[in-house]
């Protein structure tokens, strides 16, 4: 008799906790789903095409630095940010670049569009999740398996 009573209590507590957890996780899901544009840290050049009123709006644009586009002209860094769909944005930046900004590597620029040129105020280098020593790359290059730059 006592065991049955205990089981009922345990069941009640379990259902109570399950309801709390389900309510809370649903609310978090709904909040994060409705705010997903705000949570996203940057937009890609392709996304910019479908956005309106981007002129004079403070934005973050992310992608890769286009090959052969990084130049130092009249005290400003000039480069293009390109994504997988080959859409690109022309960027101008007047301060010092982070060490890891290289051509064909990830970058995030923060600033405004002025006359179709993105004037960046902050530039961040975005590295990917691949780590390997130079010797491993040389070995892959010898075998012809290296697909990077």
């Amino acid at each position: 008799m006592r065991i049955i009573k205990l089981n009922n209590q345990i069941k009640k507590r379990f259902i109570f906790l399950l309801i709390i957890f389900a309510c809370f996780s649903t609310s978090i899901f709904l909040i994060s789903y409705s705010l997903k544009d705000q949570i996203a840290y940057f937009v890609e050049p392709t996304d910019l095409k479908s956005m309106d009123g981007i002129e004079n709006k403070y934005l973050r644009v992310g992608g890769l630095v286009k090959t052969n586009s990084l130049k130092f002209l009249d005290g400003n860094w000039v480069f293009e940010v390109v994504d997988q769909n080959q859409n690109s944005v022309n960027v101008i930046f007047s301060k010092t670049l982070p060490n890891l900004v290289e051509e064909n590597k990830g970058i995030i620029v923060e600033g405004k569009f002025i006359d179709n040129i993105f004037v960046a105020e902050i530039v961040l280098a975005k590295h990917d999740e691949n780590y390997m020593p130079q010797s491993a790359i040389d070995k892959l290059k010898e075998e012809g398996k290296w697909r990077g730059n």
């Binding site: 949570i39 840290y41 982070p98 060490n99 890891l100 975005k126």
Partner: peptide, 10 residues
């Protein structure tokens, strides 16, 4: 690496 101590990403 990035050039910033802290950013408000997810």
């Amino acid at each position: 690496t990035w050039g910033a101590y802290w950013v408000w990403d997810a």
